[in-house]
């Protein structure tokens, strides 16, 4: 039994940031349509785009030959069936659409001719959100198709990554919302506070779904093939148990869920003090993000290779 060590922290950071940025783009577009908001979502979409770009830099830095990254588009023998080729195209299209969407709605880009065009914002926003979802989904499929690593080769893995990505993406929007809210005049802060409650509701629902998927995934896999069973064993009782049980399950999922639940159910008064009143979901968001990163790392680390003994 050998655990793969080819992909470590860099790929974990990439899978995490790609998910957070893609999920953030989807969440900010949804908020823009649902609440007819542009003040928060123009900043949140920019943040999501930057997160994906930074994540992609980690992906490139992990290469043995980073300066050759362009070959995933331009190789003379390009393999269109490879998930890395497909993923690179999804990432590139996402970045182009995301950049068009952000520059159409964010007032820092007033100098561009298409700034303020609702048509551009509508079309690119919808497509950027769709490709944002594809980015989150692809991070799970990338490792999910590796059939010789049974703990990855399961439909639960892309679903788990999507749930985690959307939850961290909502956090990115929530942080932006609070940061914008603090700088707004007190009269406007009520809306930002209401967004904060709404985003906490979305995030806690996503965390609940993620916990359900994670529980099912681990429960099924511990009864699965020997490699998967030993991988779960390592997560629950081995050297990664602290990171998994405390970092991912308790700190990254259970405690943020409770914090957000308390926030949603609490008294919604003095909403102009948005910094203090939204402190709980903001802290919950920090925990969710750390948990999301650790989740990617432990899933990569327990990728146990197939067992083979002499015949």
């Amino acid at each position: 039994m050998i655990f793969q060590d080819a992909w470590g922290w860099y790929i974990a950071i990439y899978l995490f940031l790609g998910g957070m940025g893609g999920g953030g783009m989807l969440a900010s577009y949804y908020l823009a349509k649902k609440a007819n908001d542009i003040k928060v979502t123009s900043k949140a979409a920019l943040l999501s785009l930057i997160i994906v770009v930074v994540g992609t830099l980690f992906l490139i830095l992990d290469l043995g030959r980073p300066e050759r990254f362009y070959l995933v588009f331009m190789s003379p023998k390009l393999n269109f069936g490879s998930m890395i080729t497909i993923g690179s195209m999804i990432l590139t299209i996402f970045m182009i659409l995301g950049a068009l969407y952000v520059t159409a709605i964010n007032d820092w880009f007033k100098f561009l001719p298409w700034y303020g065009s609702e048509k551009v914002a509508d079309i690119t926003g919808f497509l950027a959100a769709a490709f944002g979802f594809l980015v989150t989904y692809y991070t799970g499929v990338l490792i999910g198709i590796v059939r010789q690593i049974p703990i990855w080769h399961t439909p639960a893995l892309p679903l788990l990554f999507v749930a985690s990505a959307l939850s961290t993406g909502v956090v990115a929007v929530m942080w932006t919302n609070v940061a914008v809210g603090i700088r707004s005049p007190p009269a406007e802060r009520k809306y930002h506070y209401e967004y904060c409650v709404m985003l906490s509701k979305w995030d806690s629902a996503l965390i609940a779904i993620e916990l359900l998927i994670l529980f099912t995934y681990m429960g099924m896999m511990i009864q699965g093939p020997i490699e998967a069973s030993l991988a779960v064993n390592r997560l629950l009782f081995g050297d990664l148990s602290l990171m998994f049980i405390v970092g991912v399950v308790l700190m990254g999922l259970a405690i943020p869920f409770l914090l957000e639940y308390v926030h949603i159910m609490g008294e919604h008064k003095e909403t102009e003090k948005i910094g203090a009143r939204c402190l709980m979901p903001v802290i919950a968001g920090i925990l969710v993000v750390i948990g999301g990163l650790l989740l990617r790392y432990v899933v990569l680390a327990v990728g146990a290779n197939t067992v083979f003994l002499p015949p």
Partner: peptide, 15 residues
């Protein structure tokens, strides 16, 4: 034309 992405290392069942 190898970029060193290591996907093949992960995908190879025989190390």
């Amino acid at each position: 034309i190898c970029i060193g992405c290591k996907y093949c290392i992960v995908a190879c069942p025989y190390l």
